[in-house]
């Protein structure tokens, strides 16, 4: 447990002191504030503020444009950088399991991504404080859904980061995986038969829009994000273990 806690602290520290992370965070806040103010200008939103969580946390521009990209940009260094710098050998010969290495890196990225979404939540708190009639359940649910989706995308990004020491491949591969998770069900959504049903059951925008961002916590969606995240973490662990066999 001490080793895990040391590893987690190190990973959080590495993210905290990396200048590029603050660039990402600044860009994220800027774009979110921009979208937020643009949405507030819409007459429909002004008439019905309950649309706001759905548009921001649900099936909106954030999900399609920013969310698949930012998590891999955060995770790209977690393993690829270790590989590139040659620090992986010292890490994997320390008395700590490969699973603990993967989990600590993932948890650090998830904790750090709270900061990203925290900024968006702050915007809601800001207008709520000024008397806007918001549906607290939808805001909280939307926040949770966005966080779970981010955790899934971070897990995919971590797996991509384990492929090699190439940071571009880590970021590009992670973003590609995330877009595939979003787009494949979207394209197959109207397909007849089983493919259509599978696409419907795995549609992340649908889960966020009609579930979390509407204030509904669906256990199926919770399990979907948890299982898929665990799958990517497992694949990351497999990659680390296989690196021992096939360097």
């Amino acid at each position: 447990m001490r080793a895990f806690s040391a590893l987690l602290r190190r990973e959080v520290h590495a993210l905290l002191v990396a200048p590029y992370v603050y660039l990402l965070l600044g860009l994220w806040y800027l774009l979110n504030a921009l979208f937020f103010s643009l949405l507030l200008d819409y007459p429909q939103v002004q008439n019905d503020l309950s649309l706001l969580p759905q548009l921001l946390f649900g099936n909106g521009i954030l999900l399609w444009l920013l969310l698949p990209v930012f998590p891999p940009l955060l995770t790209l260094r977690l393993l690829a950088e270790e590989h590139r710098l040659g620090t992986l050998e010292a890490l994997l010969t320390a008395p700590v399991s490969d699973a603990a290495v993967v989990l600590a890196k993932y948890l650090a990225a998830c904790l750090f991504f709270l900061l990203f979404w925290g900024g968006v939540l702050f915007l809601f708190l800001l207008i709520g404080g000024h008397g806007a009639a918001l549906d607290a359940g939808a805001v909280a649910g939307g926040f949770l859904g966005a966080l779970l989706c981010s955790c899934l995308f971070l897990a995919a990004g971590l797996w991509a980061s384990s492929w090699s020491g190439n940071l571009v491949l880590a970021a590009g591969g992670g973003a590609g995986l995330n877009y595939a998770l979003l787009f494949l069900p979207h394209f197959l959504h109207d397909a007849p038969g089983a493919p259509g049903r599978v696409a419907h059951a795995t549609s992340i925008p649908l889960m966020l829009e009609s579930g979390f961002a509407a204030g509904l916590i669906d256990s199926y969606a919770l399990a979907y994000f948890a299982v898929l995240s665990a799958l990517f973490l497992f694949l990351t662990w497999v990659r680390l273990v296989s690196r021992r066999w096939v360097p």
């Binding site: 001490r2 080793a3 806690s5 040391a6 590893l7 602290r9 190190r10 520290h13 010292a90 890490l91 320390a94 008395p95 700590v96």
Partner: peptide, 13 residues
Amino acid sequence: EYLRFRAGLKGLA
């Protein structure tokens, strides 16, 4: 910092 991190990995606190 590095040595403290490594010491933590090795179970020292």
